[in-house]
């Protein structure tokens, strides 16, 4: 039968069913500090592609309430990644209570910093690093922008560290906050990081946005102002539910673009990025 686990991350509650015990056991360990909801917003299923594939070269199909028809299965050892992808998919395709921005976010002094950009731009690593350097980690993947309050609502799921991000965080946190290293996934090596105790405890505390950044990792240090019209266009591209929200999405996004200053920053190393962020943060009180 199905192994079941229920998890709440910020405002969203998930019910995960798995044909195998292993992925659920891995999730239970890493999500131990998160609340267990009774009612769930979404169902995620980890199933064998064919009945016999449960034992023979087991591979995990990701499915659930919302699915992509052509999602390729993952090997069972990457079941943790499969569960995370399944939860992301439900949010990306189903969530309607906030404007969903594909972005990392962190909070300091009661205000939120939002970081967005292409995959591999380093926003996940940067959000995780901030979370270990005096900021409260809000999210590494989805920033939830309130339709009425205009605030950034946390979605502090596990941070999905990739490649060089893994080493950067291994030096800073204990192994009990890290998942197993998943080698050779479609995105390279992956290791999951449990957000800080504080980030999880305060997952229902939103913060008004003060600054949005477009970080780019591996380039010579530079800062460029992003005008509101360009910000608007880039954020419509970074949102999976802007169109679905209709006029409410338009109102929330135009308000955000009008009131939140935006900068594109380039940096070579994580340390340099943190420095740039501190410098800019001080400019916008």
């Amino acid at each position: 039968m199905m192994h079941e686990l229920r998890i709440r991350v910020g405002p969203a509650a998930f019910r995960i069913g798995s044909a195998w015990r292993a992925p659920v056991a891995a999730l239970e360990r890493l999500y131990a500090a998160y609340p267990t909801p009774s009612y769930c917003d979404y169902t995620v299923r980890l199933e064998p592609a064919r009945p016999w594939r449960r034992w023979l070269r087991p591979s995990v199909m990701i499915s659930g309430d919302y699915m992509l028809p052509d999602a390729a299965p993952l090997p069972l050892v990457q079941g943790l990644l499969a569960a995370e992808m399944g939860m992301n998919l439900q949010m990306a395709l189903g969530w309607r209570r906030h404007l969903l921005l594909h972005a990392g976010a962190a909070e300091k002094d009661g205000r939120a910093l939002v970081m967005t950009g292409m995959s591999g731009s380093g926003k996940s690593t940067m959000a995780a690093l901030l979370g270990e350097s005096g900021w409260r980690f809000l999210s590494d993947e989805f920033a939830l922008l309130g339709l009425e309050d205009g605030a950034v609502h946390p979605f502090p799921r596990l941070v999905s560290l990739k490649n060089e991000g893994i080493e950067a965080l291994e030096q800073r946190v204990g192994h009990q906050r890290l998942g197993p290293r998943l080698r050779g996934t479609p995105k390279g090596d992956i290791r999951h990081l449990v957000p800080s105790h504080d980030a999880i405890q305060r997952m229902d505390e939103a913060a008004l946005p003060r600054l949005i950044l477009f970080p780019r990792f591996g380039e010579a240090r530079a800062i460029r102002t992003v005008p509101p019209s360009e910000l608007f266009m880039r954020l419509t591209q970074a949102s999976t539910n802007y169109v679905a929200l209709g006029e409410a999405g338009f109102a929330a996004l135009t308000r955000f673009c009008e009131t939140v200053p935006a900068r594109a920053i380039d940096y070579r190393r994580g340390e340099e990025g943190l420095e740039l962020i501190d410098q800019l943060w001080a400019q916008f009180p």
Partner: peptide, 20 residues
């Protein structure tokens, strides 16, 4: 229950968008 109402409100919002 409020949790259920939230899911149903999402669904109504989605079908309103599909209708439009």
């Amino acid at each position: 229950p409020v949790e259920v109402e939230a899911v149903l409100a999402d669904a109504r919002r989605s079908s309103e968008q599909e209708r439009r």
